[in-house]
Amino acid sequence: MTKRSKLEIIRDILTIANKNHNSINITPLIRRSNMSSERFREYYQELLNKDFLREVNSERNKIVNLTEKGLRFLEKYKAIISFIEDFDL
């Protein structure tokens, strides 16, 4: 199994939220991200800082919403990868 790049991991996490109608509880997100919880926390914090994801604290649990910027990342993901490969960056 090849190691995922940072951009692939970000895409995978955001895709999970996107497939769940852009809103998902934190626990299934961790489970489906296919990585250790410690590693997930690092990426999760980065995605919150970059405003790709937004936390909403409900009465029972924590819900994570995919933001406009996160959606934009998913839309532009192929273009980003294509650009990186084309210019060998």
Partner: peptide, 17 residues
């Protein structure tokens, strides 16, 4: 033209490019 690609990815190669 590459501003959005970098803003979204924060990829260093794109920054230097």
């Amino acid at each position: 033209g590459t501003k959005e690609l970098y803003d979204l990815s924060s990829y260093k190669g794109i920054k230097y490019f």
